[in-house]
Amino acid sequence: MEMLVASAIGLMTATGLFLILQGRSFPVIVGLTFLSYAVNAFLFAMGRLTINLPPIITPDAAYTDPLPQALVLTAIVISFGMTALIVVLGLRGFLETGSDRTDLSLAEAAKEPAAAPDSDPAGTPAGEATRA
């Protein structure tokens, strides 16, 4: 069973990593969802795997480790919050720009150095303001 869980964690991680390397916002968000599945499962697995020993106090007195569970529970909820935020960020970005690329467009990148101020060695700006 440990083998199955470990390979599943590895596979989910690999899927998530592959997807965040894509150049569009939606695959990146899906990739982050995969990564959060993988990370949650990984954290959970740090408490070792046990069957039928939920951390509910009973007279039998044998339990699995509750601490990773508490950590993962909050992690699940907070990763929802973060996913929602980046989904909305990506959406708003797309609506504003008409593109869901996760890089600057090449045209913008080419424009950048030229637009930087104070680039000429003499430093004399073209339109020098007169003294007010």
Partner: peptide, 30 residues
């Protein structure tokens, strides 16, 4: 390849931990 090696590493790490015993601080909470 990057993703595959990364996933493999995480999987191996998880496997290595799960097949070993370890002390937990959970006894206090229980």
């Amino acid at each position: 390849a990057i993703a595959g090696v990364g996933g493999l590493g995480i999987g191996l790490l998880a496997y290595a931990v799960m097949t070993r015993d370890g002390a937990s601080i959970a006894d206090y909470f229980l």
